[in-house]
Every structure is written in structure tokens, then in C-alpha cells.
């Protein structure tokens, strides 16, 4: 399911900034990153690579139907 989970987030916001498609946001209450717009995840792993505590686990599956040129 694209970005799968975030464990051990320290709330630095690196992933929010590094996500090209604006999938992640900091929760205003906990201050930690939440997977807010998962349908837009392009599964590029930049958030994981930028995370200083390597908190992000990503799965290869997209959450919405995938349109390709042939099937």
C-alpha cells in the first residue's frame, strides 16, 4: 500500500519536504509525519532515503487502480 508505515518518527519534517507528490504531512497534534494522501504516492522512496531515522517502510503496491498501456 505505497507508504506502509512510519515507526519512530521524530517529527523533523524531512519526508514532508522530500516527497515530490505531497503525500506526507506533519500531524498538528502529535508533530509526527502521517501518510495523508497515500493515493498520490509514486513509490519513489525519496521520503525513506531522506528520513534521518529511517522510519519509513514502503510497499510496492499502489492503493488506487493502475492504468498502463496494455495488459
Amino acid at each position: 500500500m505505497s507508504i506502509h508505515s512510519i515507526n519512530g518518527c521524530i517529527g523533523c519534517g524531512e519526508c514532508v519536504k522530500s516527497c515530490p507528490t505531497d503525500v506526507l504531512r506533519l500531524d498538528p497534534h502529535t508533530g509526527k509525519a502521517v501518510i495523508k494522501y497515500v493515493a498520490d504516492c509514486q513509490i519513489c522512496h525519496l521520503c525513506r532515503l531522506y528520513c534521518p531515522v529511517d522510519a519509513i517502510i514502503i510497499s510496492a503496491e499502489k492503493t488506487i487502480p493502475v492504468v498502463v498501456s496494455w495488459g
Binding site: I10, G11, C12, E14, G31, P52, V53
Partner: peptide, 9 residues
């Protein structure tokens, strides 16, 4: 980054 994230309790 870790030790300068002062917004985090």
C-alpha cells in the same frame, strides 16, 4: 537533523 529537531518533545 536528529539533534536539531527542537520542535519535537
Amino acid at each position: 537533523t536528529i539533534i536539531t529537531t527542537f520542535e519535537s518533545t
